[in-house]
Nucleic acid binder design. Structure first.
Lengths: 67, 67
DNA sequence: ACTGAATAAAAATTCAAG
DNA sequence: CTTGAATTTTTATTCAGT
């Protein structure tokens, strides 16, 4: 598994469902067979420029800055 | 000092200079005479919907989602 | 260069109080 | 309802290893 493939998966995941923290992202990736830890996900998020956006309902959700 | 006034100051600050974490925001507010702690700033950020954006240079900066 | 485990640092929430 | 102190939770980084 390459880093690029994982990063694509991360992008797909955050837009297909509300990911509220990095641990959830790790869980989803693991359930898709991608072995990854929080440290790596944090780096992926940084490289991808993703942000954790406060939602109107009081929760948080990771998203791409432009939408 | 009302919450609204402080929130306006927060918005002005994040767009006038690169605020990289909440402690810096607290420092800037304190230097402007606004007494505030990290807990409160965290709540302000949440209410305002601000995000911490990874920058190309590897740093982070708080910003408003739409820009 | 990329990663995970451990750690440090930062941020969110709880809880008590004004 | 708003806040700060303390705490918990989350995230970023360090450091060692590959």
């Amino acid at each position: 598994m390459t880093r690029r493939q994982r990063e694509r998966a991360v992008l797909e995941l955050i837009q297909s469902q509300p990911i509220k923290n990095q641990q959830h992202l790790v869980s989803e990736l693991l359930s898709r067979g991608l072995e990854v830890t929080q440290a790596t996900v944090s780096r992926d998020i940084k490289r991808l420029g993703l942000v954790k956006v406060p939602q109107p309902d009081g929760s948080y959700r990771y998203a791409s800055p432009q939408g």
